[in-house]
């Protein structure tokens, strides 16, 4: 379990190798990374540097080829599929570049979806969904379908969905990538508000402007951490 001294996330010598047509591609090579509770960290770097691979491993969507990954003090690198799904559902909130809302479900149902998988009681779900939607300012759009919302609004709903289950960490993959600058700024403001309220956030971005919103920026290059800076307040 996590305590004050143990990082929320600890990666040690994590590697990821992809094999295609007998060609080995080293996406990550010996990554060491600690993320502490309440931190707002951005991962930056050029295309192909391994940002998304790192985020997938952090989000338990993928498994590392080597090294260790501990989440809240528990080794999670080699868990079974159902275990990883369970931890993803309870400890990790995803915010995707392309929102990834389900078109057939209403805003409310989209936010409710991860709670349903958790087996949460209906009343508790309702409360959690309402709170999350209110928190991102989308409570009035609960019955709308995603197609009836603007991009910025869709991303707010995606943030609400990530928040609703009160995860240990929010993982955001280029959360402004599909938005215009005004909506991009609005989403970044929202993330900052969440961080201010205590959320741990790890964001992948290639946009230096948005990277500056984080407390700490980790630069990747060719699958290695080449810089790990605290951003001046």
């Amino acid at each position: 379990m996590n305590n004050g001294n143990t990082p929320l996330i600890q990666l040690q010598e994590v590697t990821k190798v992809f094999l295609t047509d007998e060609v080995e591609t080293h996406a990550l090579s010996g990554i060491y990374l600690d993320i502490r509770d309440g931190e707002y960290i951005s991962i930056a770097g050029p295309s192909g540097c391994g940002k998304s691979t790192l985020l997938s491993i952090l989000g338990l969507l993928d498994t590392p080829s080597g090294g260790s990954y501990s989440l809240k003090g528990t080794e999670v690198a080699n868990l079974s599929f159902p275990e990883r799904a369970r931890i993803r559902n309870r400890e990790i909130g995803f915010i995707f570049q392309s929102f990834n809302l389900i078109g057939d479900l209403t805003v409310y149902e989209n936010v409710e979806l991860p709670l349903t998988y958790r087996g949460m009681a209906a009343n508790d779900r309702k409360q959690a969904v309402t709170e999350a939607l209110e928190r991102v300012g989308m409570g009035h759009r609960a019955k709308h379908l995603p197609s009836q919302l603007s991009g910025g609004q869709q991303q707010r709903v995606a943030v609400a969905r990530a928040l609703a289950g009160k995860p240990a960490i929010l993982l955001a993959d280029e959360p402004t990538g599909n938005l215009d600058s005004r909506n991009g700024e609005a989403v970044m403001d929202l993330l900052r508000e969440l961080h201010a309220a205590g959320a741990t956030i790890c964001m992948v971005t290639h946009d230096a402007r948005f990277a500056q919103h984080a407390d700490r920026t980790v630069h990747l290059f060719d699958g290695r951490v080449v810089e790990d800076n605290l951003v001046a307040a």
Binding site: L61, P82, P114
Partner: peptide, 13 residues
Amino acid sequence: HEIGVRMALGAQR
């Protein structure tokens, strides 16, 4: 894609 999203959100098999 939708199935992928659901899995990312913690859907079991």
